[in-house]
Computed example of a mutant assay.
Amino acid sequence: MNLPPATALPQTPLLVIDRTALMRNLARMQALCDAAGVRLRAHGKTHKCSALGRLIIEGGAVGLCCQTVGEAEAYVAGGVRDVLVTAPSPPWGAARLAALAKTGATVGAVADDEGQIDRLSDAAVAAGATLDVVIDLDLGTHRAGAYPKDALRLARAADAAPGLRFAGIQAYLGHLQHMEDLGLRRSADEAAFATLKALVAELTEAGLPPPVVTGGGTGTHAYDLASGVYTELQAGSYAVMDVEYDACGAPDGQAWGFEPAIFIASSVVSANHKSHVTCDAGFKAVSMDGPPARVVAGAATGSLWRAMGDEHGMIAHPALIDVLKAGGRDPLGFDKAVASADADPARAWPSDAPQVGDIVWLQPGHCDPTINLYDALHVWDGTTLERWPVDGRRVSAL
C-alpha cells in the first residue's frame, strides 16, 4: 500500500486511491482482455468518476458501462464518448439518452420488453438520433432481463424499430460474482455460456447475428474471457477491489491478480476506553451492505472496525475483542462490558492502540456503494494528492 502521510490529508474521513496499485490493476485487466481477444467495457458504476473512466479508456477499453441514465450523462459530459446503460431505464430516461446520442456520443441502452424498445425508438426519432439497443437477458440474477426464449422476438423488434440499431445481447451474472464455492461458481458460469452460445446460433440463423455479446464481471472474469462467447467484458471492481472480493477469492483459485487500491482515511477522535478507540468513519463513510471495512494500517494487527453510528466507528483492539463480544448487540450489555474492562486493574491499557489525532486506514467492504458516499476520490501518487470528482454519483434534471 502506498498511502499519504497525515500531513497530506485535507480532512477525514477521506476516500484515497493508491494510484500505483490502481494503474497495475487497470493494466492487468486490459492485458487479460487483449490476450483473450475480448473488448473491455469497464463498468463505471463502481467508481462513478469520469477522470477514472477516461484513464481506463486511454489504457485500451472501448468505453464504459453505466447503470443509470445520470451516470451516462455525467460520463459523456466528462469526455467519455462511448457508453452503454446496462439496466433498463425508466420511461423518462429514453428522451435523455436520445439527447445524449444527439451530441455525437455512441450511446447504448439495454431493453427486456417491447415497451422499452418502443419508447427508445420514439425518443430517438424525435431527437433525430440513433441509439444502440442491446437485449438484456436474465440467466439467473432475476433483477432484470428477458428469458432467452424471448430474445429473438426482442431482437427483431429492435432491428425493425426506427432510430435504433440492434447492437447485441447482454448477460450479466451478478448472482455468481461472489460465490465462495469456486467449483459451483465456474460450473454455473459455464452453464450460462452454453445457453448464450445456443442463443447466438439461433439469432445468427435468423439473420440477426449479435454484433456484441457483453457481460461478465470481476468475480468470473477468468471464465468469461475463456468462454469463447463473450466479445465484451463488463468488469468494474477489479480497478480498486474490496474486502468482499478478497473474501470470495479469485476465480482461478490463486491469489488475486488485482490488489486493493482504495482506502478510507479516518481520524481517531476519542480514546477513553481500553477496548477501543473512536474514529470519524461511521455509516456515512463506509457502506454496510457487505462485509465490514477492514483495518489495514494505523492500528495494531488484528484490530477491527465496527460502526458506532452515522459519523463514528470503533477501532477495537485485538487483545480486548472479548470485551466487545461479551457486550454483544445489547447497548446495556456493551456499556457494562466496556465499563467493567476500564475499571479492571488486571487489564492494561494497550500500548499499541492509536491515539487521538492518529490516522487509521480502512479498506471498504464493498467498493461501489462506499464510493457513492463521497464527492471525490483523492488519488495519491507518492508525492501529490489529486482530487477526482465522483461526478456521476447523483445527476438530476433540476
Rank of each mutant, 00 (worst) to 15 (best):
H273N: 12
H312T: 12
C367Y: 09
A51T: 13
T214I: 15
N372T: 11
V323A: 02
T130P: 03
L32W: 10
A144I: 09
A160R: 15
P318Y: 04
D189I: 03
V360S: 06
W361R: 00
N2W: 10
L362N: 07
G53W: 00
G168R: 05
V229H: 08
V212C: 06
D381Y: 10
K336I: 05
Y75I: 00
W92L: 08
K45R: 08
W256I: 02
E180G: 11
D242G: 01
I56S: 05
V390T: 12
L84N: 09
V338A: 07
S89D: 02
S187W: 12
D112P: 04
V240Q: 02
V69T: 12
A111Q: 06
Y147R: 15
A191E: 13
G333C: 10
C66P: 11
D242Q: 03
P364E: 05
A111N: 02
L208Q: 08
V85D: 07
A167Y: 07
A8T: 03
A339R: 12
M308A: 15
S121Y: 06
A99Y: 01
G215Q: 08
A201L: 06
I315A: 00
A250F: 13
A158M: 14
W380Q: 01
D375E: 14
H221P: 00
T46Q: 11
C33Q: 07
D242H: 07
P354H: 12
A188T: 06
L173P: 02
I371Y: 03
K274F: 09
L40K: 06
D122C: 08
Q67D: 10
V16K: 03
F258K: 03
E205N: 13
G365F: 00
L377W: 05
G236R: 06
K45N: 05
L199C: 11
S351D: 15
G327R: 08
P354Y: 13
Y147Q: 14
G174F: 10
A337I: 10
D352Q: 11
P4S: 09
D132E: 15
T278M: 11
R54D: 01
M1I: 06
A192K: 04
A341M: 07
A146C: 15
W388Y: 14
E232S: 14
P90F: 04
V83P: 09
A255S: 13
H47Q: 14
L15M: 13
G290D: 08
R81G: 08
A300Y: 04
I262R: 03
Q67I: 03
I371G: 03
P292L: 09
T384S: 01
T231S: 15
L40V: 05
C248W: 09
A222Y: 14
G53E: 00
V200P: 07
L55S: 11
S121V: 05
L225A: 02
G108A: 14
V110P: 06
A160V: 11
L9N: 10
V268H: 02
I264F: 09
L225Q: 11
D189M: 14
A261Q: 01
I57A: 10
R143P: 02
D181M: 14
I315S: 01
G78V: 09
G253R: 12
L164H: 01
T278H: 04
G140H: 11
R81F: 00
L362R: 03
H221N: 10
A160K: 15
